[in-house]
Design a binder for these strands. Structure first.
Lengths: 118, 118
DNA sequence: TTATATGCCTAATTTGATTAGGTATTACAT
DNA sequence: ATGTAATACCTAATCAAATTAGGCATATAA
């Protein structure tokens, strides 16, 4: 688990990319996916996740469909066309940001950025 | 320039690492170094920088020495021993965090993380 | 002489997380 | 049968850390 204010600014990117990869997901599922994909290193809190989802929906990047599993509600989210664009933009922006920061943190250029597999 | 809440959580890491590499720097100098090292992609605002420096000093990670250049004040910061430890810890944490996030954003592993130079 | 660069700073606001609740259904032990 | 954990949604109060927008002063270049 991270001592992360690092997550700030990354959450929406994570959400958008996961939806881009998976078609549709509901909130709880997103927390589990992230947990699985990160070996529990990132555990999204619901207090961060749901407001973020609502915000993305309000911005027109996500659309929802509600389903019932028995009596239990599930709210699926999927990307709108705008959302698809945003997903790829934000992933690219994050990658670029990381490259930039690593350029400062890692000033000695081997091949380039230290992210080379051994 | 970044649309960055991405910077959140990264600023102190940047400061610590720059001081680790440079021995001592003053505030204004840090903004310039970052600007230079990032081709102006990251421009630290003073409203973020100075409070961050003061906080790191309060935490015992930085020590200061004030000098006068003519009548103009310069406040140099350098790492304490605690600060040196924190610098390497935070750089490692950032790298780990990035690796983790990229694992989600970039689920298809070529060699590993997409950060391979062409 | 006036704008720009250097150099420090803080206060109000905004953003976006954490913490800590609340509600309800379903599954699994004891 | 009963209580705990997992599933599933949500919000409000608080906290952290940035942006925005100032203020002050000296030095330099137009």
């Amino acid at each position: 688990m991270y001592s992360s204010e690092l997550l700030k600014g990354t959450l929406s990117t994570l959400i958008l990319k996961l939806l881009d990869d998976n078609g549709r997901l509901y909130g709880y599922e997103i927390t589990q996916r992230v947990k699985d994909l990160t070996q529990s290193r990132i555990q999204l809190t619901e207090g961060a996740l749901y407001p973020a989802l609502h915000k993305l929906e309000a911005e027109g990047l996500l659309a929802t469909e509600t389903e019932y599993i028995g009596k239990r509600v599930r709210k699926y989210y999927r990307l709108t066309d705008l959302g698809k664009q945003a997903a790829s933009d934000k992933v690219a922006e994050f990658a670029d940001f990381v490259r930039t920061v690593l350029g400062v943190l890692n000033p000695k250029p081997g091949p380039q950025l230290g992210f080379v597999t051994p």
